[in-house]
Amino acid sequence: TTQFTVHSPEQAEQWKEYAKQKGLEVHVQKKNGTWHVTIH
C-alpha cells in the first residue's frame, strides 16, 4: 500500500487515472484542504 498527500484535486485525479491504468485500487480522502491518496 502506498499512501501520500497531494494538495490539489487535479493531482488526486492524475493518481486515480494512473491507478486505473495499472489495475490498482485507489482511495482518495479529502481532509483539511489536502487529499490523502492511498493506492492498494
Score class of each variant (00 low, 15 high):
1 T>L: 13
1 T>R: 09
1 T>K: 11
1 T>Y: 14
1 T>V: 13
1 T>P: 09
1 T>G: 09
1 T>D: 10
1 T>M: 12
2 T>I: 15
2 T>A: 10
2 T>M: 15
2 T>N: 09
2 T>Q: 13
2 T>W: 15
2 T>S: 10
2 T>H: 15
2 T>G: 08
2 T>E: 09
2 T>F: 15
2 T>L: 15
3 Q>F: 11
3 Q>E: 13
3 Q>N: 09
3 Q>M: 10
3 Q>S: 14
3 Q>V: 12
3 Q>G: 07
3 Q>K: 11
4 F>V: 10
4 F>Q: 03
4 F>K: 04
4 F>H: 06
4 F>S: 03
4 F>A: 04
4 F>E: 03
4 F>L: 09
4 F>M: 07
4 F>Y: 06
4 F>T: 05
4 F>W: 04
4 F>I: 13
4 F>D: 02
5 T>S: 07
5 T>M: 10
5 T>N: 07
5 T>W: 12
5 T>I: 15
5 T>Y: 13
5 T>E: 13
5 T>A: 08
5 T>D: 11
5 T>R: 06
5 T>L: 11
6 V>R: 00
6 V>Y: 03
6 V>D: 02
6 V>Q: 02
6 V>C: 08
6 V>I: 05
6 V>K: 01
6 V>H: 01
6 V>N: 01
7 H>K: 09
7 H>S: 14
7 H>Y: 14
7 H>M: 11
7 H>P: 09
7 H>D: 15
7 H>N: 14
7 H>C: 14
7 H>W: 09
7 H>E: 13
7 H>I: 08
8 S>E: 05
8 S>N: 06
8 S>A: 04
8 S>P: 01
8 S>Y: 07
8 S>Q: 03
9 P>A: 15
9 P>Q: 15
9 P>W: 15
10 E>N: 05
10 E>Y: 07
10 E>C: 06
10 E>M: 06
10 E>A: 08
10 E>G: 06
10 E>L: 08
10 E>R: 06
10 E>W: 08
10 E>S: 06
10 E>P: 02
11 Q>N: 04
11 Q>W: 04
11 Q>S: 08
11 Q>L: 13
11 Q>P: 02
11 Q>M: 12
11 Q>E: 15
11 Q>D: 11
11 Q>Y: 05
11 Q>R: 06
11 Q>V: 12
11 Q>K: 07
12 A>H: 02
12 A>Q: 02
12 A>L: 13
12 A>M: 08
12 A>G: 03
12 A>I: 09
12 A>P: 01
12 A>W: 07
13 E>A: 10
13 E>F: 07
13 E>K: 08
13 E>Y: 07
13 E>R: 09
13 E>W: 07
13 E>I: 06
13 E>Q: 10
13 E>T: 05
13 E>P: 01
13 E>V: 05
14 Q>N: 07
14 Q>S: 10
14 Q>P: 02
14 Q>V: 09
14 Q>F: 15
14 Q>W: 15
14 Q>H: 12
14 Q>D: 06
15 W>N: 01
15 W>T: 01
15 W>Y: 05
15 W>V: 05
15 W>P: 00
15 W>R: 00
15 W>F: 05
16 K>S: 06
16 K>L: 12
16 K>D: 02
16 K>R: 12
16 K>W: 09
16 K>T: 08
16 K>H: 05
16 K>A: 10
16 K>N: 05
17 E>A: 08
17 E>S: 06
17 E>F: 05
17 E>L: 09
17 E>V: 07
17 E>M: 08
18 Y>N: 03
18 Y>C: 11
18 Y>V: 04
18 Y>D: 03
18 Y>I: 06
18 Y>S: 03
18 Y>Q: 03
18 Y>H: 04
18 Y>W: 15
18 Y>F: 10
18 Y>T: 03
19 A>T: 02
19 A>R: 00
19 A>V: 03
19 A>M: 05
19 A>I: 03
19 A>W: 06
20 K>H: 09
20 K>E: 10
20 K>P: 02
20 K>V: 08
20 K>W: 07
20 K>I: 10
20 K>Y: 08
20 K>G: 05
20 K>R: 12
20 K>A: 09
21 Q>K: 12
21 Q>W: 08
21 Q>P: 02
21 Q>H: 08
21 Q>L: 13
21 Q>R: 11
21 Q>F: 08
21 Q>N: 11
21 Q>M: 11
21 Q>A: 13
22 K>H: 14
22 K>P: 02
22 K>I: 08
22 K>D: 03
22 K>E: 07
22 K>Y: 12
22 K>N: 13
22 K>V: 10
22 K>S: 09
22 K>F: 12
22 K>L: 14
23 G>P: 04
23 G>K: 05
23 G>F: 03
23 G>W: 02
23 G>H: 05
24 L>A: 04
24 L>P: 01
24 L>T: 02
24 L>V: 06
24 L>F: 11
24 L>R: 03
24 L>K: 04
24 L>E: 02
24 L>Y: 10
24 L>I: 07
24 L>S: 02
24 L>W: 13
24 L>D: 02
25 E>F: 13
25 E>K: 10
25 E>N: 10
25 E>W: 11
25 E>V: 13
25 E>T: 12
25 E>A: 11
25 E>P: 05
25 E>R: 10
25 E>L: 12
26 V>D: 00
26 V>H: 03
26 V>Q: 00
26 V>G: 01
26 V>P: 01
26 V>M: 06
27 H>W: 07
27 H>F: 09
27 H>D: 08
27 H>G: 03
27 H>I: 11
27 H>K: 07
27 H>L: 08
27 H>C: 13
27 H>Y: 09
28 V>D: 00
28 V>P: 00
28 V>H: 00
28 V>Q: 00
28 V>E: 00
28 V>K: 00
28 V>T: 03
28 V>A: 02
28 V>R: 00
28 V>G: 00
28 V>I: 14
28 V>W: 03
29 Q>L: 11
29 Q>T: 13
29 Q>W: 08
29 Q>H: 09
29 Q>D: 09
29 Q>K: 10
29 Q>Y: 09
29 Q>P: 00
30 K>I: 12
30 K>G: 06
30 K>Q: 13
30 K>T: 07
30 K>V: 13
30 K>E: 15
30 K>M: 13
30 K>P: 06
30 K>S: 09
31 K>I: 15
31 K>W: 08
31 K>Q: 11
31 K>T: 10
31 K>R: 12
32 N>S: 05
32 N>R: 05
32 N>T: 02
32 N>F: 05
32 N>A: 05
32 N>V: 02
32 N>G: 12
32 N>Y: 05
32 N>H: 06
32 N>K: 07
33 G>E: 08
33 G>T: 03
33 G>S: 04
33 G>I: 02
33 G>N: 08
33 G>L: 04
33 G>Q: 05
33 G>Y: 04
33 G>A: 04
33 G>K: 05
33 G>H: 05
34 T>W: 12
34 T>M: 14
34 T>Q: 13
34 T>S: 14
34 T>N: 11
34 T>P: 01
34 T>A: 15
34 T>C: 14
34 T>H: 13
34 T>E: 14
35 W>L: 05
35 W>R: 01
35 W>I: 06
35 W>H: 02
35 W>G: 01
35 W>Q: 01
35 W>Y: 11
35 W>F: 10
35 W>D: 01
35 W>S: 01
35 W>N: 01
35 W>V: 03
36 H>L: 15
36 H>M: 12
36 H>W: 15
36 H>E: 14
36 H>A: 06
36 H>D: 08
36 H>T: 14
36 H>N: 06
37 V>M: 03
37 V>W: 00
37 V>H: 00
37 V>Y: 01
37 V>I: 14
37 V>R: 00
37 V>N: 00
37 V>A: 00
37 V>F: 04
37 V>P: 01
37 V>L: 04
38 T>C: 12
38 T>E: 06
38 T>I: 13
38 T>H: 04
38 T>K: 04
38 T>F: 07
38 T>R: 04
38 T>L: 08
38 T>A: 05
39 I>P: 00
39 I>N: 00
39 I>F: 04
39 I>D: 00
39 I>V: 06
39 I>E: 01
39 I>A: 00
39 I>T: 01
39 I>H: 00
39 I>K: 00
39 I>R: 00
39 I>L: 10
40 H>M: 12
40 H>V: 14
40 H>Q: 09
40 H>N: 08
40 H>I: 14
40 H>E: 09
40 H>F: 14
40 H>T: 11
40 H>K: 11
40 H>P: 03
